[in-house]
């Protein structure tokens, strides 16, 4: 319940935070909302020598909406993403997903950047980022680099982030007008994490699917894009048969995780069921 001792620095600039990370990449951890890090420190599953609190860094904050897209600072909390009216006017997916994360107190503190960088295989935002074709902006020693969300997640709790890099912002291209969104999730009863979560961005033109992106979380080692299922839907109606086929393709896209609570078969089934229900919800 009490973490092992560590040093604490409240970073005053992104450069300072990156320098501190570079000094001791293995022994340094970034502190944002702390809702993943602090429990693991309390249980002494991790004992970093230094915590760098990035909570003051203005360049990691805020939601900006422009003609071309939406920019979200890594420190934006789940609650802020839930509450932002301009954001949810454009992308109601944020409200849907944020509302299903953990509980109100955790949402008040936990951040989207922390969630993405932690890459919990059952976290919600990864699926949403994939469905929105987001781009992750990463700050490092030599400035910023960007990477598509679909290339960001590597494995269980593992991303392309180097030890001296900081997830700074998320850039989301402005969706084509008329795009519909849905996030569905089956929650683990204890942790509240996704047993399976599915995010979809989909556009119909004259009852035919013209654009579709599907992000899936909870089912595999990391969130993934349901490419085959989405491709299959393009140019088709959302008929029962087409939906069934897309669901089959999506569940075949991965080898599902199996754990004490849910078998791989169950997760594969949830992928199908939830995709079908999501698509039905999007059917006009």
């Amino acid at each position: 319940m009490i973490p092992a001792a560590f040093d604490y620095v409240r970073a005053s600039s992104l450069t300072q935070a990156i320098d501190l990370l570079r000094n001791d990449p293995d022994g340094t951890k970034l502190l944002a909302g702390g809702h993943t890090l602090l429990p693991s420190l309390k249980l002494r599953l991790a004992s970093p020598a230094l915590l760098v609190d990035i909570g003051d860094l203005a360049e990691l904050k805020g939601i900006e909406i422009s003609e071309t897209g939406i920019r979200i600072g890594a420190l934006t909390t789940h609650a802020e993403l839930f509450a932002s009216l301009p954001l949810n006017e454009q992308l109601p997916l944020f409200r849907q997903a944020a509302g299903l994360i953990a509980d109100p107190q955790v949402r008040n503190r936990g951040t989207i950047g922390g969630s993405l960088a932690n890459a919990d295989p059952a976290a919600d935002w990864p699926a949403v980022m994939l469905a929105l074709q987001a781009e992750i902006e990463i700050a490092g020693t030599s400035g910023f680099r960007t990477i598509l969300a679909r290339d960001f997640f590597v494995d269980i709790f593992s991303t392309v982030l180097e030890a001296d890099e900081i997830l700074a912002r998320i850039n989301i291209p402005r969706p084509t007008a008329g795009t519909r969104f849905v996030y569905r999730k089956i929650r683990h009863p204890a942790s509240g994490f996704a047993v399976v979560g599915i995010a979809i961005a989909l556009r119909l033109s004259q009852n035919l699917v013209s654009e579709a992106t599907i992000g899936v979380t909870g089912a595999a080692n990391h969130a993934f894009v349901g490419e085959d299922a989405a491709d299959f839907l393009i140019g088709k109606t959302l008929s029962r048969e087409n939906i069934d086929q897309a669901a089959r393709l999506l569940s075949e896209a991965t080898e599902c995780l199996s754990d004490r609570y849910a078998s791989a078969d169950y997760r594969a089934n949830l992928i199908q069921v939830e995709l079908k229900r999501a698509l039905l919800a999007l059917t006009p």
Binding site: L43, D103, H188, P189, A190, S191, R260, Y261
Partner: peptide, 28 residues
């Protein structure tokens, strides 16, 4: 909801915290 699980092979407690032992909340 609730069930304590042990690993049958090595006797490890698998429901070691409230993250995996499902005490119901109001919504359950």
């Amino acid at each position: 909801y609730e069930e304590v699980s042990y690993d049958a092979d090595n006797g490890q407690l698998l429901t070691g915290s409230l993250l995996d032992y499902a005490v119901p909340r109001a919504e359950h």
